[in-house]
Every structure is written in structure tokens, then in C-alpha cells.
Computed example of a mutant assay.
Amino acid sequence: MTEAFVDAGPRIGDAPRRMAVAAEDVELVVSLARGDREALGELYDRHGAPMLALGMKLLRDRGEAQEILHDVFLEAWKHAGDYDPSRGAVRTWLMLRMRSRCLDRIKSAARSRTSSAGEQLERVVGAAPAAAADHTDAQRVHGALAELPDDQRKVLELGYFAGLSCSEMAEELSIPIGTVKSRMHAAMKKLRATFSAGRLEG
């Protein structure tokens, strides 16, 4: 019986074909810089799928990835004249823009979580350590945190000061999400009681 021949090496003609596609991409970007809308559609058809896949891998959210993909192609439309073929292929140019915008979105979300968590902690204790009204308040905050059990203090540090979500904390600590939430609730309850008592004494 004759065995099927399997060519494990690069196929003849692959390199020239890739070069031809790359050259066509450059021509499309040049046309795009001249305002050719059809060129934008052609670039989307060629590169949209891998860019979307990258966005979904980084963001783990198809809707956000599609939104950023749309924004990146709008940027490509506006800045097509800035593309320099000597610095890389068109696909590389687009993929780097996609990656950069996704990372910006991730950083923005982390800052938002940290900010909102910090505001919530301020509402509980009356003042955050960095913005305490006086030295006594700052000492009270640090003292209250130090008195918490280690497991409860850890989730506060990760959630309120590092900006991690419940799922991220669960992964970091190797515990169920439900345990993270119960520890957070217990810690906030103790802090609330401590500062309520402190205000009454004051």
C-alpha cells in the first residue's frame, strides 16, 4: 500500500505569496490615506478576524473586543498616512494598535476598580489613610486594619488597595469566590463597628 506523502516543510510558493499579500496591504493603506473607503473594508476583511481574536484573548469579552476593533480601524483610517512599511508589515501595525488599545482598557478598568473601592472604604471608615483629617484618624485606620485577622486583611489589601476583582482575588488566594466575599463582608463589618465606636468616643 502506498503511503500518503506529507510535506512537513514550507510549501513552495508560500514566501512569494506572503510577499505579494504584504505588498497589496501596503497599497491598501496608501489608498486608505487618500480616503478610499473600499480599502478600509478590504483591510478589515483581511485582518479583522485575527485582531478580534487577540482582543478577546486579552479582554475575555467579545463585546469590548469588537468595540476596540472598530476604534482601531477608525484610527487606521485617520492615521494611514503615518504608516511606514520599513517598520513592519501592515498586519503587525494593526495588531500592535489592537494590543495597545486592549491593554489601555485593562489598565483603565483596574484604576476604576481601585478608585471605587477606595471610595467605599472611605465611606466605611470616614477617611482613607492618605486623606485622613489628622494624624489620629490615620493611626486609627492603620490600627483597625492591623487588628483584622490575616485572611480578612489580605482580601482588603488585594481588593481595595491593589484593585483586584473577586474572581482575581479567588485565583490569587486559591479560594472560592464565595469565601472571598464572606471575608470581605466580615472585614468591612468589623471596620464599620470599630469606627462607629471611635466616633462615639470622640
Rank of each mutant, 00 (worst) to 15 (best):
V30P: 02
R199Y: 14
D84V: 01
L158Y: 07
G9H: 06
K190N: 01
D84E: 12
F195M: 10
R183H: 14
V124I: 11
H142S: 10
M169V: 14
V90I: 06
S174Q: 13
D45Q: 12
D151G: 05
A110I: 03
R199M: 10
V125M: 14
L96G: 02
G63N: 14
S116Q: 13
A49F: 00
R17A: 15
M188I: 11
I12R: 07
R140T: 11
R183L: 10
A76P: 02
L32D: 09
M19R: 12
W93K: 02
A53E: 05
H142R: 15
A162H: 10
A162R: 15
M51L: 08
V6A: 12
V180C: 14
E24N: 12
A89H: 02
A193Q: 07
S116H: 10
L96V: 04
H135K: 08
E122S: 12
A170I: 05
A53P: 00
E119G: 15
R123E: 11
V124G: 03
D150P: 04
M188V: 04
V155W: 04
D71C: 08
L145T: 00
A131L: 14
E157W: 06
E147F: 01
R97F: 00
R18F: 15
K181F: 07
E42W: 05
M98W: 00
T114V: 06
L94N: 00
E38S: 13
V180H: 07
A33V: 10
Q152N: 13
M98F: 04
D134Y: 15
M184Y: 02
S174K: 15
V124H: 01
A162P: 02
E168C: 09
D134I: 15
V155Q: 07
A33E: 09
P50Y: 01
D7Q: 15
V180A: 14
G9V: 11
A49M: 01
R113I: 07
S86Q: 08
D7V: 15
C166V: 14
V6P: 12
H47I: 05
R101T: 02
L52I: 05
D14K: 11
R11E: 12
E171P: 06
H142Q: 12
A110Y: 04
S86T: 06
G35E: 06
R17F: 09
T114P: 01
V72L: 06
A170H: 09
G88C: 04
R60G: 11
I175G: 01
P50N: 03
D71A: 12
R105A: 15
I177E: 14
V26K: 05
P149A: 07
V155T: 10
L191F: 02
E64L: 13
L145N: 01
E172Q: 14
Q152W: 02
K189L: 05
P149Y: 07
D150L: 08
P149S: 08
V72W: 05
G35S: 11
G48K: 03
R99F: 04
L173D: 13
A53Y: 02
V180D: 06
Y83K: 07
A187H: 01
M98A: 01
H185E: 04
D61V: 09
G81E: 15
E24K: 14
R99K: 09
A20M: 07
P149G: 12
P10Q: 14
H70L: 13
L173F: 13
A23Y: 07
D137H: 15
A197K: 11
P50K: 03
Q120K: 12
L54F: 00
A33Q: 07
R192N: 08
D7M: 12
E38H: 14
